[in-house]
Design a protein around this nucleic acid. Structure first.
Lengths: 246, 246
DNA sequence: CGTTATGTTGACATTAATCAAGCACGGTGG
DNA sequence: CCACCGTGCTTGATTAATGTCAACATAACG
């Protein structure tokens, strides 16, 4: 089906009518549904970027493989996220399902045309791109936390706040420890030890491997922010050092 | 490179058109020139994002300050890069001059209007946003390098290749060791030691503090890629571990 | 059930951070 | 021109943290 037909079915824009402006989700709503089982790859780094996807349900991981075979998780995908939007002709990373997932698929070419035609969508897409960029930068900031405690605390809070209007105390962790480790640039052992440590201090409870409950959010936040808390004696880190410029 | 915003190299693209449609640089060419001395800030994280800038000459650093006062360098800005392009109303980080710099300034509102009106500019901006996102991810990948050697080697190669069509053996390092350290998430001591080590192995020469010359690019590349090289006995790192999924 | 993936815990080794001192360069002023 | 700082950089000794290796526990799966 052509773009135009899609557009008209959505009742939008090209006609200038004042009906509900289309959002990105509505563009995808008529597209084929893709389902994938845990571990299944949607596409691989380097593949021809033929499609754009929108996540409807479940969680996925985006990862890059380094020359020496190491794995870097560049992000976790949640419902609403777009995958494969780029001007490159090849996917920049591999995307694999963590849980059972459901997505909508849209041919990339047509998606681009569609977006080009509709200012509304363009605006939304731009906004999403900015969000993604911020997320990418946030990961860089996260990775530059000093201690394992800080990284894990940040990660848990990130997962707790993600997408939920109300940051919940119950946090779903469908990804494996290896995923977390490769996201935080640590080893699975250190991840495990750190979570155990938080639990033993009563900051969290870990009823099973794929979830945790945050009991003392403020403490977790302190650790995440690198505050001395009861861990270190507030060594000021490198607080004194600044570039000498005024 | 990596900014909230967009760091983009200019000038490219638009090819294919005989009639030279306006490109981003030409949009800036009539705007007021801003000059800044080393150490001077263009704007601070949290400031009202009133302007978009394009770098014409010199180098700057974009940095974020963490709650505990730590400094994270999220990117170095080169000629052609844009700063401040974003949907947010406030700058997401501070930008300071490293060398003497010259920029063009454009009111953000007008810039957005301009871009909205001209499909050509829109396309360019979108393209740069994507590049920018890639850059942000690249930093995350860089930060998740295991050893100090790998990080510094990658950094030197990055600086060597940056923007230059021909990767030069002479690399300019106008930033301080502290800047490098805060970019790579290391201490100045380790940065210094690593550079010294490379020099003592004959991989590079460091005639003065603000520049180095790469003598054995292939070796530097091997180290950057985490190859055993003559450093470690190719321990396969965690090459064996992969998610168990096919 | 037995078998395989995944996660936890422990002992040890290694790396990079920390603390501390000294060096080198660039400016300033005598 | 040279002594004199101040800043940034280098180098060394020590320590603390995390990676590594290994064993075991637990859940997942046929």
């Amino acid at each position: 089906m052509t773009l135009q037909s899609v557009a008209m079915q959505d009742g939008l824009g090209t006609l200038g009518c004042s009906l509900a402006p289309p959002d990105l989700s509505s563009v995808f709503s008529l597209q084929p549904v893709i389902e994938a089982a845990p571990g299944q790859a949607l596409f691989w780094q380097g593949d021809d970027a033929k499609y754009v996807f929108q996540v409807e349900g479940g969680m996925l991981r985006a990862l890059r493989l380094l020359a020496d075979g190491r794995r870097v998780i560049v992000g976790f995908l949640h419902p609403g996220d777009l995958l494969g939007v780029s001007l490159k002709d090849r996917y920049l990373y591999t995307v694999e399902a963590i849980t059972e997932v459901r997505l909508r698929r849209y041919p990339r070419r047509r998606f681009e045309d569609e977006v080009a035609l509709q200012p509304h969508l363009r605006q939304q897409l731009f906004s999403k791109l900015c969000d993604e960029m911020t997320a990418a930068q946030d990961q860089a900031v996260l990775l530059s936390r000093r201690s394992a405690d800080e990284k894990v605390a940040n990660f848990l809070l990130l997962m707790a706040n993600d997408r939920d209007a109300e940051p919940s105390a119950f946090v779903d962790l469908p990804m494996t420890r290896l995923d977390i480790a490769d996201y935080l640039n640590m080893t699975i052992e250190t991840v495990s030890r750190t979570i155990t440590k938080f639990a033993s201090k009563g900051i969290i409870v870990a009823p099973d491997r794929r979830s945790i409950i945050i009991l003392k959010r403020h403490m977790l936040q302190s650790i995440a922010d690198g505050d001395g808390c009861d861990f270190r004696s507030a060594p000021m880190s490198n607080g004194g050092r600044r570039a000498g410029f005024a």
